[in-house]
Simulated scan of single mutants.
Amino acid sequence: MFNVSCLHEMAIMFACMKKNEFKEVKCSEEIETFNKCHMEHIELKKLAKLREESGQVVTGNNARKLTTKQLNQLLAKYPQYNEEL
């Protein structure tokens, strides 16, 4: 499933626009809320990119998209010993 940012805010904004015949003046609050959400999303993406470039391991939603450097850091931090019986 895709992680779509600000989808809820965008839906509310478009519903308001449709209700008010696409007059932006009547939906200024909804537009401002959407723009704020979008700007926050952009800032979060920038921070995530900076963390990735610095080599800091980022877990969570993007855990499957680890770089080789990050993966090696995790494997070194949590070594797996295979004992033969």
Score class of each variant (00 low, 15 high):
residue 27 C to H: 01
residue 26 K to H: 11
residue 65 K to V: 02
residue 50 L to Y: 05
residue 85 L to G: 14
residue 79 P to G: 04
residue 46 K to W: 05
residue 70 Q to R: 06
residue 32 E to H: 07
residue 9 E to N: 05
residue 39 M to L: 05
residue 14 F to E: 09
residue 15 A to S: 11
residue 20 N to F: 14
residue 36 K to V: 02
residue 35 N to D: 09
residue 51 R to H: 11
residue 39 M to V: 01
residue 81 Y to W: 03
residue 70 Q to Y: 07
residue 63 A to V: 04
residue 13 M to T: 02
residue 84 E to M: 07
residue 58 V to D: 10
residue 7 L to D: 11
residue 78 Y to A: 07
residue 76 A to R: 15
residue 32 E to S: 12
residue 23 K to V: 10
residue 14 F to A: 06
residue 15 A to K: 15
residue 1 M to Q: 02
residue 59 T to E: 13
residue 18 K to N: 04
residue 15 A to C: 09
residue 34 F to G: 08
residue 58 V to R: 12
residue 46 K to G: 05
residue 48 A to E: 13
residue 39 M to C: 01
residue 64 R to Q: 08
residue 10 M to I: 00
residue 59 T to I: 15
residue 42 I to G: 01
residue 28 S to K: 10
residue 69 K to F: 15
residue 13 M to G: 00
residue 8 H to C: 12
residue 33 T to G: 00
residue 63 A to W: 04
residue 1 M to R: 07
residue 6 C to H: 09
residue 50 L to W: 06
residue 83 E to V: 13
residue 62 N to H: 13
residue 64 R to W: 10
residue 70 Q to W: 06
residue 9 E to F: 04
residue 1 M to A: 08
residue 73 Q to P: 00
residue 53 E to Y: 00
residue 47 L to M: 07
residue 77 K to Y: 06
residue 51 R to D: 14
residue 48 A to D: 13
residue 1 M to S: 12
residue 33 T to D: 12
residue 55 G to M: 06
residue 44 L to N: 07
residue 73 Q to Y: 08
residue 18 K to S: 05
residue 5 S to L: 10
residue 47 L to G: 02
residue 57 V to Q: 08
residue 41 H to R: 02
residue 3 N to W: 06
residue 8 H to P: 02
residue 7 L to C: 02
residue 80 Q to E: 07
residue 11 A to F: 13
residue 22 F to E: 06
residue 38 H to T: 12
residue 36 K to L: 09
residue 46 K to I: 06
residue 35 N to C: 01
residue 44 L to H: 02
residue 43 E to K: 06
residue 43 E to P: 00
residue 62 N to Q: 13
residue 40 E to R: 02
residue 24 E to I: 11
residue 42 I to R: 06
residue 67 T to Q: 01
residue 83 E to G: 06
residue 44 L to V: 00
residue 78 Y to R: 07
residue 4 V to F: 14
residue 6 C to P: 13
residue 44 L to F: 02
residue 47 L to Q: 07
residue 26 K to E: 08
residue 52 E to L: 02
residue 4 V to S: 07
residue 21 E to D: 11
residue 46 K to F: 04
residue 2 F to P: 12
residue 72 N to Y: 11
residue 32 E to G: 01
residue 81 Y to Q: 10
residue 57 V to F: 12
residue 82 N to V: 15
residue 4 V to N: 10
residue 27 C to M: 01
residue 6 C to M: 06
residue 72 N to W: 12
residue 83 E to Y: 09
residue 12 I to C: 04
residue 32 E to V: 00
residue 74 L to Y: 01
residue 60 G to T: 12
residue 62 N to W: 15
residue 43 E to W: 03
residue 69 K to H: 15
residue 76 A to D: 10
residue 30 E to A: 06
residue 32 E to R: 11
residue 35 N to R: 02
residue 5 S to R: 03
residue 6 C to N: 04
residue 81 Y to V: 13
residue 8 H to F: 07
residue 78 Y to D: 05
residue 10 M to L: 11
residue 49 K to A: 13
residue 15 A to Q: 14
residue 51 R to Q: 14
residue 74 L to K: 08
residue 29 E to M: 03
residue 46 K to R: 09
residue 75 L to D: 01
residue 52 E to Y: 00
residue 44 L to T: 05
residue 1 M to L: 04
residue 81 Y to M: 01
residue 15 A to E: 15
residue 37 C to V: 03
residue 38 H to I: 01
residue 5 S to A: 10
residue 63 A to M: 05
residue 3 N to P: 05
residue 71 L to H: 09
residue 24 E to F: 07
residue 54 S to E: 09
residue 29 E to G: 01
residue 39 M to A: 05
residue 34 F to H: 08
residue 70 Q to E: 15
residue 29 E to Q: 10
residue 53 E to P: 00
residue 67 T to L: 04
